[in-house]
Design a protein around this nucleic acid. Sequence first.
DNA 1: AATTATTTTTAGACTTATCTAAATTTATTT
DNA 2: AAATAAATTTAGATAAGTCTAAAAATAATT
Lengths: 222, 222
Amino acid sequence: MYTQAEENYLKVIFTLQKVKEEPVNTNLIAEKLSTKASSVTDMIKKLSAKKLLSYQPYQGVMLTKTGRSIALKVLRKHRLWEFFLVDKLHFKWDEVHEIAEQLEHIQSDSLVDKLDYFLGLPKYDPHGDPIPDKAGNFTGEELISLKDMEIGERGILKGLKDSSNVFLKYLDRKNMVIDDQIEVVEIENFDRSVLIKTNWETFYISEQVAKNLLIKRKSDEL
Amino acid sequence: MYTQAEENYLKVIFTLQKVKEEPVNTNLIAEKLSTKASSVTDMIKKLSAKKLLSYQPYQGVMLTKTGRSIALKVLRKHRLWEFFLVDKLHFKWDEVHEIAEQLEHIQSDSLVDKLDYFLGLPKYDPHGDPIPDKAGNFTGEELISLKDMEIGERGILKGLKDSSNVFLKYLDRKNMVIDDQIEVVEIENFDRSVLIKTNWETFYISEQVAKNLLIKRKSDEL
DNA sequence: AATTATTTTTAGACTTATCTAAATTTATTT
DNA sequence: AAATAAATTTAGATAAGTCTAAAAATAATT
């Protein structure tokens, strides 16, 4: 069993490591955890002694297999709880993060599995981040930004990059919700605005909006 | 905001105070929290400094109004989460306690309220303990043991004193579930066994079983 | 390559919550 | 009421996690 502090370090290091494959440096971790570099060094030594990460002084850290699997478990719990909060308790997307930060540390394997099942084994959290399965694998495909889709491509709206209130309200007015089907009809060369066709209507969205819509590509097998 | 340790002390002191109205003594608290008397003294001083309880050395403690209201909040969360685990995630009654011990410390007022609403504003947890409402009041009536009911009385099964697996299995075989209506038809003087009538059938239960069934008395207003 | 700047680590201190062992107070017996 | 027992508190220690300030190592610059 690991402490909340340990879990938070592992989680942050995992997400930082995903961005660039190099060792993660102390200051970055400190910044993400709103703590001081000296505290990070202390904790890093502890986690290194527990073989959750490998650490050469002054050279940054990399998670071991064990460390990564713990991080993935925490991430899984975080995203499942976020899904629960939005889907079942009807929280807004931008209200759930700090609550999920607490819930992700609840210890009980059976709880996670039952929750997963109760929610219908979701593949993405409300922000479009993929939810690892029990084994730590991401089974859902990567989501892409709508602005990277090509003309004629279809997909399903699965998440948002920006979940601010203004943006949510905008989507509301356009009657767009998660799991909507979207087809790219046209891309305007001048301002990169996109003509999209939803289940209900066809309309233009600006590049800024397109950038913030996360889409699961429609697989051709259908 | 209070630490988990503080909340646990307040919760335990509250429940001990309910049993007998006198000040709660150090050793009892230590026993319930599986800690040492000296640790309890330390924490008591801290809580007393925060005016969450009143404390005269060697004379035990009593919660202040503030202390009581915090304890009630924790209790409310504990019981709502227990209800969630059993009712939504289909945990067995005897598996939920230690998970609820963790969940009860999640900090978010809106979470508690939304959870309460999501669950349908339940009045009792799966063990038949009453769930305080937002204001800290118990709106459901006290539950009584079936063995204290009189002939002809009717009520609703709302909880169990014993939630061991054997007992749950027994109830299962008798097709008894929460919210069943039960009427006391006869009480056998010899062994205090009780003839009860459920929605489905009429049968005898032993005094031991009757003792462990918690009933909400049927109000006459119907 | 030498100097400066940045990053990281060490050293020592603080807080929370716990413990053991000894001292003190209260309760119980003879 | 004196002696013993039980309960409670104090004193001093420990572990986790954090901090500040100073030292050491690495990176960047002239």
